[in-house]
Design a protein around this nucleic acid. Structure first.
Lengths: 169, 169
DNA sequence: TTGGAAAGTCAACAAGGCTGACTTAAAACC
DNA sequence: GGTTTTAAGTCAGCCTTGTTGACTTTCCAA
């Protein structure tokens, strides 16, 4: 039904596109992603937070002053779901929601010092693993890694990702 | 605190290990993984199943006859959590749990034809995206992609992954 | 001045994790 | 042969994080 061994343009067999190769990639994604989230998860247990809080903190740190709507779009969850998380972070003094200057309906989100401290703790753990993997695999592998991941994203998100990539120098 | 611009052994600056590069990698993982799971998720909505059922089906298909304990170790969840999922799949006739031949305490898990049909539907969708990403990025990128993901896994899981990789030809 | 957008909130629900306690059957050990 | 351990299964209850639906307040803009 789906052998993957489709004849290539140049007549070359695309061995890296066989079903078996694709399955390996699928499993690698599953196992690697689980490892990737495990370090921050362990840290978050000590606080009263979960993965959802981590994601909010990450993107607020990344784009300080972004609006709730923008964060909603980035995270891909509902307003109600994000609100629960955001309220906890604001109440606990990790995130500040300032009334928009141009448009007073908007809330611009910023990390407080306390929020930045947690962000650093979480991202340090995550970067440590990422750094070890990058170092083990080497620069060429890292380029390929990023290329495949980008190609896998939905186009809208890819644009957003690339804008963020180019923006934050 | 953590500039990432550590001097290399050869005196060369490791640009691919800067904090910024690592953060890009972290975000790429997040966005790509979400896209990666979205196709099967959409299909599963039509049935009464979720991501947990998909994972069980995937690994039973991959290693037919594996025991409940082995599946537990692969998925990294509790017995109670898996049981809920597995019971539904057995009751609905997608998975068969045969009493072990050597050890009658064990249950060897197999997909039924119905189970295989759903597995195919799910993995077709996931492989279609993976194939498009692989094709867009090219063989060299795919090699790098797999290398980084493997390096990111926890060692125990990596061994398990590699065994599965080498086993299923 | 009125329509619509941004934000926030309440309530209820579902999936899928978790812990703890306990049973049954069978293997393994002594 | 009796005891201990292991594999599986189950019940109950809890938590996080997602969902829908309904509704309010504020405020920009046509």
């Amino acid at each position: 039904m789906d052998t993957g061994s489709t004849g290539a343009q140049g007549g070359e067999t695309l061995l890296f596109l066989t079903d078996e190769q694709l399955r390996k990639g699928i499993e690698a994604m599953f196992f690697a992603y689980r490892a990737f989230t495990s370090d921050p998860d362990r840290i978050l247990e000590n606080y009263e937070y979960g993965r959802a809080h981590h994601r909010a903190i990450h993107f607020i740190n990344r784009q300080p002053g972004l609006t709730v709507t923008a964060l909603l779009a980035t995270l891909g969850v509902t307003k109600q779901s994000l609100n629960r998380v955001l309220r906890a972070l604001v109440d606990d003094g990790l995130v500040e929601a300032r009334v928009g200057r141009r448009d007073k309906r908007e809330r611009n989100l910023y990390l407080t010092e306390k929020g930045e401290a947690l962000e650093r703790e979480l991202s340090d753990a995550q970067r440590t693993r990422m750094r070890a993997a990058y170092r083990a695999a080497g620069p060429a592998a890292v380029t390929g890694f990023r290329q495949v991941l980008e190609a896998m994203m939905d186009p809208d998100i890819r644009r957003q990702y690339q804008a963020m990539r180019d923006g934050a120098a």
